[in-house]
Write a protein that binds this DNA or RNA. Structure first.
Lengths: 217, 217
DNA sequence: CTATTTTTTTAGATTTGTCTAAACATATAG
DNA sequence: CTATATGTTTAGACAAATCTAAAAAAATAG
């Protein structure tokens, strides 16, 4: 069994591995964990000793199968709790991240299986992220970043790659929520901001925002 | 804000104060916390410094108003989660204590208020214990221990004063669950065990068990 | 290929909650 | 009222997770 802190390290290494084929570096973990590189080195040694990560000095880390499985389990719990908070307790999608960050560390596996059932085995969370099943299996939804689309292309909003409250509130205000159909009308040359149509409204989003909106064509 | 451990100490001091007018002793806390007296002394000092308990060396402790309010809040969370586990996730009353023991430490007050609402503001938990409202108010249900009843007396099972899985499973097997109507038929002289009728069945419980069953006459 | 910068690790200290062993205070018995 | 037993506190140590400062390795620039 892992401690609260060990679980957070595993989860962060897992997320960093998603956008990155190579070994994850100490500094990258330190930044996400809001801690110092020296602390990360200490924890890394501990996780390596427990066979949860592969580690060679100065060479970064990768998850072992056991570490990956533990990480996926935490992600599963996080996302199921987010569904619960939104569907059952009527929280908004921008309010649930921090609470789920605590709930994901509750240990009982029986609890999670019953919660999963209570929620009717949801396949994705309120931000469109896939929820692994109890064996750690999940479908990777193929998506394109909104910032990669060209003028005239159409698509559906499938997810977001940024979970901060500020970002999500901003999308909500613009009407850019999950499932909405959008059409690109123009990409501005000078700042790469994106003009698009959503529900008969013409709106504009910066490239920075567009990079974090995930589209199914 | 208190740590996980501080919260557990406050909760235990609160529960010990329920059956006891006097100051709570170091050893009593140590036993409930499954730790050593020396550790309790250390923690006691810390809680006293934070003005959560009143403490004079060798004289035991009592909760300050702030400490009591913090403790009641933890009890509220524990009991609401127990209701959730039983009513929504179909756990049995003997399975929920340990899980609620973890869930009670989740920090968000917004979460608890919404959970309370989702559960339709329950007044008592699956073991019959009252649930404080968000201001810490709750009704103390007047009850008598089954072991205090006399032959011929009738009553309703209102709660239990022991939450171990073994005890609760035992009651379940005997059909002695919340709300059941019972009639005492006989008290055995030699071992004080209690013979009673519940739903047309004649059963017998030891004095030890009878002491932990709470009855409304 | 050497010099400099960046990144990572080590060494040693700190905090939180715990422990054991010993000292001290209080309660109880004769 | 002294002796003993019980209960509590202190002193000093430890493990977990963190930190700062300094050393070491790797990457980059000229």
């Amino acid at each position: 069994m892992q401690s609260f802190t060990e679980e957070n390290y595993l989860k962060i290494i897992y997320h960093l591995s998603q956008n990155n084929e190579e070994a994850i570096q100490t500094n990258a973990i330190a930044e996400k964990m809001q801690t110092k590189a020296a602390s990360v080195t200490d924890m890394i040694k501990k996780l390596a000793e427990k066979q949860l990560i592969n580690y060679k000095k100065y060479q970064g880390v990768t998850l072992t199968p056991a570490g990956k499985s533990a990480a996926i389990n935490i992600v599963r719990k996080h996302r199921l709790w987010e569904v619960f908070l939104v569907e059952k307790l009527n929280f908004k999608w921008d309010e649930v991240h921090d609470i789920a960050e605590d709930l994901e560390h509750i240990k009982s596996t029986e609890l999670i299986e019953r919660l999963d059932e209570f929620l009717a085995f949801p396949k994705s969370d309120p931000h469109g992220d896939p929820i692994p099943d109890k064996n750690g299996q999940f479908d990777t939804i193929p998506f394109t970043k909104l910032s990669k689309l060209k003028s005239g292309e159409k698509g559906l909003i499938m997810g977001v790659s940024e979970h901060s409250s500020a970002f999500l509130k901003h999308l909500e205000k613009l009407g850019l929520t999950l499932g909405k159909k959008i059409t690109i009308t123009e990409i501005n040359d000078f700042d790469s901001s994106v003009e698009l149509m959503v529900e008969q409204k013409r709106i504009s989003v910066s490239r920075e925002v567009a990079k974090h909106i995930l589209i199914k064509l």
